[in-house]
């Protein structure tokens, strides 16, 4: 029996689906940001606040990835964004094909900006391209600054780290300087913005980042 040489990356079909998504996003003029973090870092609350703050400037949509429930999609819908929920039924990450399946629920033509809130997990989501333009990671103070070095793959593949919950810094041993240094070591191109969504600290810097990437992208497409 002949051995058939396939020599394909295990993620080849995901990468194909991601390329397809990316073409759709370009065609409809939607800038897509993949938001990753561990569970409880504050992704949904961040997006709620972002929709409130930028809802006048951009038409915003959100895709929520969770193992189960519609809770998160309902939360961002209540803030006036278009939302679609993906329930992965146990799968620890979103895949490009899952995203593709819910796109008809969103009406891409009516959107400028789409956030994909990945499943809360600092490992698996980092390997899956969803067709996004930008990847960001939310890290929160109670998790500890060692997470950057302990989960390097996630932080190697992110261009922005939002350090959330800095209002509780006095109660934790989180070393912000060390976090910035560790991030610089493993991923010199990445940037860290300390914020508190709840206390509304420094959120303008995050909004400015969005404005910048959006402006750069629409200029490139024009």
């Amino acid at each position: 029996m002949a051995e058939i040489i396939l020599s394909q990356d295990a993620l080849a079909s995901n990468n194909r689906a991601a390329a397809h998504n990316r073409r759709l996003f370009e065609q409809y003029g939607v800038l897509v940001i993949n938001v990753m973090s561990s569970p409880g870092a504050g992704k949904t609350t961040l997006l709620e606040k972002t929709i409130e703050a930028l809802g006048d400037r951009y038409r915003i949509g959100v895709i929520q990835g969770d193992l189960a429930t519609q809770i998160d999609a309902d939360r961002v819908r209540a803030r006036g964004a278009r939302a679609a929920q993906i329930n992965t039924h146990g799968v620890c990450h979103l895949e490009a094909a899952m995203v593709n399946k819910v796109l008809p629920q969103l009406d891409l033509e009516a959107l400028d900006l789409l956030f994909i809130e990945n499943v809360g997990n600092l490992v698996c989501p980092s390997g899956y391209d969803l067709g996004e333009h930008h990847r960001i990671t939310v890290l929160s103070v109670p998790e500890g600054n060692d997470k950057i070095l302990k989960y390097p793959v996630m932080f190697l593949r992110t261009e922005l780290v939002l350090l959330n919950k800095i209002d509780v810094l006095p109660y934790f041993d989180f070393d912000v300087e060390q976090a910035i240094e560790d991030l610089r070591t493993i991923n010199p191109k990445s940037r860290l913005i300390p914020i508190s969504v709840k206390a509304e600290t420094n959120l303008d810097e995050w909004y400015r980042w969005i404005d910048e990437v959006y402006a750069r992208w629409s200029k490139a497409g024009a």
Partner: peptide, 26 residues
Amino acid sequence: RVALCPNCGVPGGKLIAGDAIRILSY
């Protein structure tokens, strides 16, 4: 994963092998 060069001590070495899963053949 955070690679430190043993020669010059600089971090941020670029992975050139070992970070993927490939189907070789069947």
